[in-house]
């Protein structure tokens, strides 16, 4: 008993009490802050299929840019042009399409399609991709990413995807 009394002086008690107040305060304020900061990791709206045009809009063998919207949920209301995204859509044959992400696999800059030589060029560090998305030169570590594409009732649809990351 005596030992307890010596250990628990007024100063020690006051210190522990302050630490408790601070700890409880930090938890009450901190939890919602952590929730808001980390929220985007587990509350992202689902990926959805987006219509990018009629099948007849695309010629076999050609690659063109298509634009469509991400699914951003309620944030969409004020997201301006950032709700949009683009893909390079290639019609391989009758109903076979490939949708290449515009993000270069080196560091994410938007690749540009040159129709005549049939290559994609990255404006940042000069990566070059062949028409089928494989690497032709430059620092890109892997072929261009592709998105799921489907044809439904004569319409071409691309599924929205997170920004592809070269890990």
């Amino acid at each position: 008993m005596n030992i307890t009394r010596k250990l628990m002086t007024r100063e020690v008690f006051a210190g522990l009490f302050l630490a408790t107040v601070g700890g409880i305060g930090s938890i009450i304020v901190g939890l919602p802050i952590i929730g808001v900061v980390l929220g985007p990791l587990f509350t992202a709206p689902k990926d959805v299929w987006r219509d990018v045009g009629a099948i007849s809009d695309f010629k076999v063998g050609e690659t063109v840019q298509v634009k469509y919207n991400y699914n951003q949920g309620e944030v969409q209301q004020w997201s301006g042009t950032t709700q949009e995204t683009a893909a390079w859509l290639r019609r391989n044959s009758g109903t076979s399409f490939t949708a290449f992400a515009v993000y270069c696999t080196h560091l994410g800059c938007p690749v540009h399609w040159l129709a005549a030589p049939r290559i994609f060029l990255c404006p940042c560090h000069g990566s070059v991709f062949n028409g089928d998305g494989t690497v032709a030169g430059g620092p890109a570590p892997r072929p261009l990413f592709t998105y799921p594409v489907r044809v439904q009732s004569g319409r071409v649809q691309i599924k929205t995807q997170p920004q592809p990351l070269s890990l």
């Binding site: 951003q72 301006g80 950032t82 560091l107 920004q163 990351l165 890990l167």
Partner: peptide, 28 residues
């Protein structure tokens, strides 16, 4: 590009990248 670089962090790369863009891609 910042997100792409952050994604190179071992193990938690994708999370760090998506925290930077506040979602799966740059958004509102």
């Amino acid at each position: 590009v910042g997100a792409e670089q952050a994604a190179r962090t071992p193990i938690i790369g994708t999370w760090v990248a998506q925290l930077l863009t506040a979602g799966p891609a740059v958004n509102g």
